[in-house]
Write a protein that binds this DNA or RNA. Structure first.
Lengths: 127, 127
DNA sequence: CGGTATCCCATGTGATACTG
DNA sequence: CAGTATCACATGGGATACCG
């Protein structure tokens, strides 16, 4: 029950609270969402996500990796290639991210019906 | 496209990002969750939520109210009574909070089957 | 009972420039 | 290509005390 631990979510009691500690923060949800269809390279993520600096992108990806939600695969090639993907645990979050996304889209006055998972046109641009 | 606006989520493009701006933060999800069964008084919330100061509780409740997710009803009595509840929009978030809660409980090694909505024993204490 | 006021610190996030 | 390094700052959040 020591409170003075790091910020690692050990002694949390509430499941909602606990979950928010793992997917909270400004970018985590969005990154998970962008990995919904599978493997993405670092540069792909960077290009598809507006408003995030390389530093933050790297930092958050490392946090997600350390937290067991995302995998990082480095290919020893030139030029370097690094691929990110969701772990099974991370993937379990997709239904909920999808719900959230639909809610958000509805609130924004967009069409909530357009399914995030296989919809392309709108999503590639603005999500 | 002005970036220098307040922290009001006007110019967001990503629905996930947008949604996180409305339910992000350390306590918002938990508060919404605690209002899942309906009206709660300020003191009830305060007592049932560990690890949150009155200042933060008030502050977050006001944010949620301003944001149209929670209603605040003041009764002009002595002693004073203030009741909080979810708006329809706020209530639409419950399925997603529930999913999140189940995921969290599973991750914590607890029984994810215990349904948050009508389960009593475990929840009253530890959620 | 249901809050406010004040002060303060940690951390999260950003801008910019540079590298193996 | 896929990051790091460094600096700087805003804001989120906590402790404590007090109020109508």
């Amino acid at each position: 029950m020591k409170k003075s631990e790091k910020n690692i979510h050990t002694d949390t009691i509430c499941a909602v609270d606990y979950a928010f500690q793992r997917i909270g923060g400004k970018h985590k949800g969005r990154i998970i969402y962008h990995l919904r269809e599978g493997v993405r390279r670092y540069g792909e993520l960077r290009r598809s996500m507006t408003g995030i600096t390389p530093k933050m992108l790297t930092q958050v990806l490392r946090e997600l990796e350390e937290d067991g939600l995302v995998t990082r695969h480095v290919y020893l090639e030139v030029p370097p290639r690094v691929e990110y993907n969701l772990t099974d645990t991370g993937r379990e979050l997709l239904p909920f991210i999808t719900l959230l996304s639909q809610w958000g889209r509805k609130q924004m006055g967009m069409d909530p019906q357009c399914e995030p998972v296989n919809a392309g046109m709108l999503l590639e641009e603005s999500v």
